[in-house]
Design a protein around this nucleic acid. Sequence first.
DNA 1: TCAAAAGTGTTGGGCTTACACCCATGA
DNA 2: TCATGGGTGTAAGCCCAACACTTTTGA
Lengths: 229, 229
Amino acid sequence: MLNNYSKEDKVLLAVDCIIFGFDGQDLKILLIKRDFEPEKGKWSLIGGFLKKEENLDESAIRILNHLTGLHDIYMEQFYAFSKVDRDPAERTISVAYYALIDIATSEKELIQLNSAKWFSLEKAPKLIFDHNQMVKHAVRRLKYRTKTNPIGFELLPDKFTMLQLQNLYESVLNKKLDKRNFTNKINALDILIKLEEKDMESSKKGSFLYQFDLEKYNEKLKEGFVFKI
Amino acid sequence: MLNNYSKEDKVLLAVDCIIFGFDGQDLKILLIKRDFEPEKGKWSLIGGFLKKEENLDESAIRILNHLTGLHDIYMEQFYAFSKVDRDPAERTISVAYYALIDIATSEKELIQLNSAKWFSLEKAPKLIFDHNQMVKHAVRRLKYRTKTNPIGFELLPDKFTMLQLQNLYESVLNKKLDKRNFTNKINALDILIKLEEKDMESSKKGSFLYQFDLEKYNEKLKEGFVFKI
DNA sequence: TCAAAAGTGTTGGGCTTACACCCATGA
DNA sequence: TCATGGGTGTAAGCCCAACACTTTTGA
């Protein structure tokens, strides 16, 4: 085929995933102990290399599934990191994705991994390369995203209490919210189904469980509704 | 150096720039006639390949400068496009940047280029590869950006009228704005300097010229002020 | 009976939007 | 004098933030 690309430099293209989880209390990220050189044995984001026959989204899904067993996960590309010596072994550009998962329901799939561990954001260890910077970037993006999209769909279990949802928003936004205002706002969005059922774990009185109403959500989304919290 | 990257696929990494300009009336993008195969002679974004010794930002700056003569341009990375066959010649991933420039003041530098041309957004031709999709993506991002940042700094000449600024916002947001409300909002941001001088081109009465107050802007930015229009 | 979490409304202030007329000037 | 674009203010409604007490029930 006619082209004059042949003199151009080729590079390795990595995909790294910041996997956010929520345990009902704190926002966490999933990290693994790297099992190959360089930096073998150090904590790292979940990552791998783009293959010739896949695009970046497919690559991110493959890598996540291969290293954790997780599938059907919400992921979004957010930035390409390219400092020349970010990987000391070889020139590598990394395209970063963030993923949102519910810790509780994914636990079964993750349990077999002894090299992966959840860390709450504040207690995350020093990571290899520029991975700490990637995490910071991803947190900023997630925070931003709450201004236009609900994040609970992916991060919470199917049924959850209002307090869990509020805790999630407080964790992501990193500030306290008023309980009454939060409830009012969420109810105004009109995308939750209040169940008859109560969660009896957290208190004697019990608190009502909710579900996201995916159908209503999609309708409103189509109409250009903005889900601002 | 110890590593086992050697079996991984390497790819070409392109950088493509969506260059936005504003002529006081319409939002435009700068395109060039491609002068190499494949797709030689077709309209294309300004682009090139990442070199081993530079990061993506540096690459974008180099490519823009090399092809247009422009320098000191505001640029921001926004997305990596990676469909497997997006470039039919060879597997290429493209990291897209958008740039904001003032058409009037950059004209001198651009004038020597016979292969580059400004197109208003609606009248842009069909572009090679996935470049039309990139443009669409960039426009969406620019629109989004107006919700938190003024965009006039980069897109308007040093001195401009209130109507030009309003036209710019109307072009980007793709909707009509009310003149009085717009003026009130902009004045409330308190980052413009109203000059004594008037622009006499547009009307018999003449209209006052404004300048951005970069110092005030930076102060407010530091305080976390959000420049919502 | 008490401790602990759940649940629930109102009000004031600020912001946003809608809206129309006079001014200055050159032709 | 008239046509053209420039410039200006207010009122209503909506949204947001602040705020505290009652309910339930297991221990």
